[in-house]
């Protein structure tokens, strides 16, 4: 039993340490083309925060900018993003990256909810608006 437990722990360490890039669900905006597993010439899932005042819907397409750690890229998505998509929330966009135009051609957008739960009321909304103003900073 001790041996089995030791083997399982060792397996867990291997998975956690050496397969990180394979298990990680997404790359951050600043890691595309930089981090292992986030190569720019293949299909990627990119996580970033939707920039304020960047969302535009035209002809069935939705375009917006996402940023993370000071890096920024444009996203063109063929459709209307689902979920609770809105400005200043983190999203994960699936697609292919076009390096010359710094644009991610997305075919799926998922909204990544944080671990914060804030009640809706006027006071909180004011606070949220203040936070939203800061999201592009």
């Amino acid at each position: 039993m001790v041996l089995v437990a030791a083997v399982l722990v060792a397996g867990g360490v291997i998975v956690a340490q050496f397969l990180r890039s394979a298990v990680d669900y997404y790359c951050n905006v600043d890691e595309v083309g930089v981090r292992s597993g986030c190569d720019a010439d293949r299909r990627v899932r990119v996580q970033g925060i939707v920039e304020r005042n960047s969302v535009n819907s035209t002809g069935g397409d939705t375009s917006f900018d996402i940023s993370f750690n000071g890096a920024r890229m444009s996203v063109v998505y063929d459709g209307e993003p689902g979920g609770i998509f809105k400005e200043c929330l983190p999203v994960v966009v699936h697609g292919t990256y076009d390096a010359p135009t710094n644009t991610l051609l997305g075919d799926r957008v998922e909204v990544k909810h944080s671990d914060e739960y804030v009640a809706v009321n006027d006071e909180r909304l004011t606070e949220a608006d203040e936070l939203a103003d800061e999201c592009t900073a």
Binding site: H113, Y117, R124
Partner: peptide, 10 residues
């Protein structure tokens, strides 16, 4: 209450 982002889904 409802949630700021999730609304009633919370």
């Amino acid at each position: 209450p409802a949630d700021r982002d999730q609304d009633e889904a919370v």
